[in-house]
Amino acid sequence: MNYFKGTGDYVLSPELKDNVNVSIALARPLLVKGEPGTGKTLLAHSIADGLGKKLIIWNIKSTTKAREGLYVYDTVQRLNDARFGDRDVSDIRQYIKLGKLGEAFNSEEQVVLLIDEIDKADIEFPNDLLNELDEMSFYIPETGDTIKAKHRPIVIITSNSEKELPDPFLRRCVFHYIEFPDEKLMEDIVFVHFPDLEKKLLREALKKFYWIRQFDMLRKKPSTSELIDWIQALIAGGISPSKVEKDLPFLGTLLKKKEDTDLVNQSGSAHYGYSSSVRTRNVY
């Protein structure tokens, strides 16, 4: 029985850990959503590490088709080979290349399969995979073979919710929404990355970070990964905690848009920044 306890280099909430175990026990894909930079992809790495299993990553792009994950039949190669007679072209099997999903099914031991950013693909993409994920098998008409999973892989799917996912697909998943970590959890996360970070610097940096995140108007709110970059920069630059408190050095690592930087710079004190949120009526 697989039981995921978490790993030392990845901090996660107990709810997420429970949900990972629920999805493993029920043998259903775990669909993870959340703000960018909350560690959705890293979760799969951590699960693979924690359970000591191999990780297979299938990165989805806007042009990815569901079939590519199963297998690709390299007809062009076969046609080329036919002209020179290099290989026996009647053996179609050698021109069938398994995709990531096929690889995971065909593996001798149980693997963790990460389907990364499933919402990037066409809207029909998840529906095309329904049967394969349910039955954990698929049929190759060219050779008449059926690839069946020897061990049901642990499937983790991430989504940035750029597109809605179809209902039949959602019904088969266990869903977890990663909330943005609160200050307490964030401290733990940062400490995993910087074990000997000065407490005072961390506290000041977090205070500023959560203050910036309060701005409703930001085009892109800074996320965990940006915070870690920022702290890295603060350490490398030898910035003292009092300087972080007074002004914001290396703001460019946190905010990536000019409008956002302007907005934060304009609203000098924490008070004003809060009241300039959208919901405030500000009629002149």
Binding site: D18, V22, C173, F175, Y177
Partner: peptide, 14 residues
Amino acid sequence: KFYYVARAILVKNE
């Protein structure tokens, strides 16, 4: 735990 488990299984959108 029931609250979270049931939410993960029943609700598919935040």
